[in-house]
Amino acid sequence: MLTKRIIPCLDVINRRVTKGIKFKNNIDLGDPVELAVKYSDGGCDELVVYDITASAEHRPIDIEMVRDVARSIRIPFAVGGGISTLEEMSRVLLAGAEKISVNSLAVKNPAIIGEGARAFGAQCIVLGMDPVQTQNFERCPSGYEITTRGFREHTGIDAVEWARRAEDLGAGEIVVNSVDTDGTRDGFELNITRLIADAVAVPVVASGGAGCAAHLREAFDTAHADAAIVAGILHTGATTIAQLKRELHEAGVPMRMHW
């Protein structure tokens, strides 16, 4: 049986892993390569590395960091952060990343999803999205609107529509990172995660709000997610991947238990 994936997320600024709540109040958590090795050895199934200021600073992604992570771990990882051209996708993949995560720039230029999928294969192209609850049901019938640029901009785009469109364009996987639950540790936003998981045929990753194993179980069982992103509770040492996996395994969730 295909196991559910636990994916630690490393938000990197100037080659340091940071963690903030709703993209604010960032604190330093250490070296991305060291953390990648720690989590990989600890049993994570995949990793995501976001160069979170590349986009705002209008600079290319830190390729040296991508290369160093690739040299140090033997599991797949995705890289995101302001990737807007095929050339940059190619550089990141050749540095050893398995997947490219696109988010804000795909909203601005959806064609990049298809171009990337055709050039490198759909499995390489992950669409990240940051939906937020809205009362504007006329524009966003699902009740969720896509935000961009680190939650700063509202787009008026319906989250479920956008997920369907991204799938049609060639996205191989969709990460649903809820603005409403990000950093709260109160659990994932199950409603939008499920709406999207049920709307598309590609795997969906729940993100934002992981606080304990029970939250991951809800994401898998209730919200139909195929994988879940975990950050804060690992970074601070509140729990470990092995501990989360043990609890989920005991609860009957298929997990990779040997690594």
């Binding site: 795997p203 969906v204 040997h258």
Partner: peptide, 30 residues
Amino acid sequence: PRDKVPQIGWNQVEYTHQHPIMDGIENRSE
């Protein structure tokens, strides 16, 4: 519909014949 395509992730391999390439690797490893 909950079985997504592509299959992405870790899944078990169950041996049906012995082969030297699996030496020292437990049956049903992911």
